[in-house]
């Protein structure tokens, strides 16, 4: 299909979301910097959010009646807010960690290993 002429659908948004999600996951899996992991989490969350919004939208569906409607946007809003909260807490934890260890390398934080 020709993306320049054909209308896009929820699937396309989901594809973008999937890329962001996977990038976030890989980011989490490979970055040793704690803040890098935090950014990975943000990516993951945004990828997921994109799906919510896409499913909520009525323009992106064959049959608009099946769309989630405003619910999708609302959930996305909640996710954004919670992500902001999570970022604040995670950042606080990171700062604390840094204060105690003088590093932000998460590989050094393996003392819970049993």
């Amino acid at each position: 299909m020709n993306l320049l002429t054909d209308p896009v659908g929820a699937s396309h948004f989901m594809a973008v979301g999937a890329v962001m999600f996977v990038c976030g996951v890989v980011c989490m899996a490979t970055k040793r910097n704690g803040l890098g992991i935090l950014m990975g989490i943000e990516l993951v969350i945004n990828g997921a959010n994109l799906n919510f919004v896409a499913f909520g939208s009525e323009f992106l569906r064959r049959n608009p009646d099946y769309a989630l409607g405003v619910d999708g946007q609302l959930i996305a809003l909640f996710v954004i807010v919670l992500a902001a909260a999570e970022a604040a807490v995670a950042l606080a934890i990171a700062l604390n960690y840094y204060n105690n260890r003088a590093t932000i390398d998460v590989d050094r934080a393996d003392e819970l290993k049993g």
């Binding site: 209308p7 929820a10 396309h12 989901m14 999600f21 992106l60 064959r62």
Partner: peptide
């Protein structure tokens, strides 16, 4: 994971977008 998600995304015909 990407493969998994992509095939899931394009799997449902209804999600592919409005008719031309």
């Amino acid at each position: 994971l990407l493969g998994l998600l992509l095939q899931a995304a394009f799997r449902v015909e209804e999600w592919r977008g409005p008719p031309e």
